[in-house]
Simulated scan of single mutants.
Amino acid sequence: MPLQDVIGHAAVIASIQRAEASNRLAHAYLFHGEASIGKRLTAVRLTQAFHCEQRQDGAVIDACGVCRSCRHVEASTHPDFLVIEPDSEQAVPQIKIEQIREIEQQIMYRPLIAERKICLIDQADRMTIGAANALLKTLEEPPDHSLFFLISSRPAALPVTIRSRCQALRFTTPPRTQVEAALILKREIPPSDTRLLAIISEGRLGDALVADPAEIRARQREVMELIRPQTLGSVTAILAQAESSAKSDRVPELLSWLTRWIRDVIILQVGGDRDHILFAEDLETLEMYSKHADTDALLDILCDIEQTDRQATRHLNLQMALEQVLLRLRDACTAQPVSQRS
């Protein structure tokens, strides 16, 4: 069944199934939560369930996944399934008012073959002000046969007026065990790769399904080479790495990887669950640093990296920012051993 394709969001699906069974279905739902965790997939699978030709009267909505309607919904070609999403070819992808007005014209007419017309608005927070105002008019007086699914990983960016006219359902990242099981089933990769992808994606199954384990390990080796004592202890090497990363526009990527490495060190320092360590293949080096590094200094570095990430679009000198992070990391990791601190 297609609804079984959705990993980790059974509660959300069940709530809509119950609402439909009791004729208390809202006219608009806002699916919100982190990116790439299955919000859009859930909306598509629910649409298949509503439109499925094999649906039996009185049964809980579900979909066969193979009938004509289910296949057309999957391909976004069903006449009673309308999809709006930002124009990916734009420098700053947006949903424009013209897209909403086109939907308004279509949603007012009764469904052609299904019981209702369903509209999915992906990345709804990217609507322009004009588009949001146009949608608001429809949400205020929706046709009885309409159902809206708004998808957003930044619900606070939506106008309050839009949010207030939708029933919000929060999506959370599924447990790592479910992500690993899904990866084994869908990608047929070994357990070592599923563990790696589940950790690096932080439960975002959509990212894990397309990530390349070999590429991730290549990035890990780069970071491990950078933070080995021989490199981290050399100011010349640090400055050269920062310059090289800036020229190739990879500073944000490298800072992100350094964040994960620092977190691994802190996990060891505080006695956390080692199963959450990303750089498990370099455990010996991590343990060495965990015995000497200044935890407070590492936490300060993490805060500074986060601030750098927020300011990355403000013409910040990223090369200098990376230099500072690496130099501070060198100092933090050559601190007095934990056992000798007063």
Results as ranks from 00 to 15, higher is better:
Met1His: 15
Ala11Leu: 10
Val12Asn: 14
Ile16Asn: 02
Ile16Thr: 05
Gln17Ala: 11
Ala19Ser: 15
Ala19His: 15
Ser22Val: 14
Asn23Ala: 11
Leu25Ser: 10
Ala26Lys: 01
His27Pro: 08
Tyr29Lys: 12
Phe31His: 08
Phe31Asn: 06
His32Ile: 03
Gly33Val: 00
Ser36Asn: 06
Ser36Leu: 10
Ile37Thr: 08
Arg45Asp: 01
Leu46Gly: 02
His51Ser: 04
Cys52Asp: 06
Gln56His: 08
Gly58Ala: 04
Ile61Gln: 03
Ile61Pro: 00
Asp62Gly: 07
Asp62Asn: 13
Ala63Met: 02
Gly65Arg: 04
Arg68Leu: 11
Ser69Ala: 10
Glu74Met: 01
Thr77Asn: 01
Val83Thr: 02
Val83Arg: 03
Asp87Met: 02
Glu89Gln: 05
Gln90Val: 03
Ala91Ser: 02
Val92Asn: 04
Pro93Gln: 04
Ile95Gln: 06
Ile95His: 04
Ile95Tyr: 05
Glu98Ile: 07
Arg101Gln: 08
Arg101Tyr: 04
Arg101His: 06
Glu102Pro: 03
Glu102Ala: 06
Glu104Ser: 10
Gln106His: 07
Met108Ser: 07
Arg110Met: 10
Leu112Tyr: 09
Ala114Gly: 09
Ala114Leu: 06
Arg116Met: 13
Lys117Gln: 05
Cys119Ala: 10
Gln123Thr: 01
Thr128Tyr: 12
Ile129Met: 09
Leu136Glu: 08
Glu140Trp: 03
Glu141Leu: 06
His145Asp: 07
Ser146Glu: 00
Phe148His: 12
Phe149Asp: 11
Ser153Val: 08
Ala157Glu: 15
Arg165Lys: 15
Leu169Cys: 12
Arg170Asn: 14
Thr173Ala: 12
Arg176Thr: 09
Arg176His: 05
Leu185Glu: 11
Leu185Phe: 07
Glu188Phe: 00
Leu196Asn: 12
Leu197Thr: 11
Ala198Asn: 14
Ile200Pro: 00
Ser201Tyr: 11
Ser201Trp: 08
Glu202Phe: 10
Glu202Arg: 15
Gly203His: 13
Arg204Asn: 15
Gly206Pro: 13
Ala211Ser: 15
Arg217Thr: 00
Arg219Tyr: 06
Arg219Thr: 05
Gln220Val: 10
Gln220Trp: 04
Glu222Val: 01
Glu225Ala: 08
Glu225Lys: 14
Leu226Phe: 03
Arg228Phe: 06
Leu232Thr: 11
Ser234Glu: 15
Ser234His: 11
Thr236Leu: 06
Ala237Thr: 11
Ser245Cys: 02
Ser245Leu: 13
Lys247Ser: 06
Lys247Asn: 08
Leu255Arg: 05
Ser256Cys: 02
Trp257Met: 07
Thr259Asp: 07
Asp264Leu: 00
His276Val: 04
Leu283Phe: 07
Glu284Arg: 14
Leu286Asn: 12
Lys291His: 09
Asp294Ile: 05
Asp296Arg: 08
Ala297Arg: 07
Leu298Gln: 05
Leu299Ile: 13
Ile301Ser: 12
Cys303Met: 11
Asp304Thr: 15
Ile305Gln: 06
Ile305Arg: 12
Arg310Ser: 15
Gln311Tyr: 12
Thr313Leu: 12
Leu316Tyr: 09
Leu316Lys: 03
Asn317Met: 11
Met320Leu: 13
Ala321Val: 14
Leu322His: 04
Arg328Glu: 01
Arg330Cys: 07
Asp331Cys: 01
Cys333Ile: 00
Val338Leu: 08
Ser339Pro: 01
Ser339Arg: 08
Ser342Gly: 09
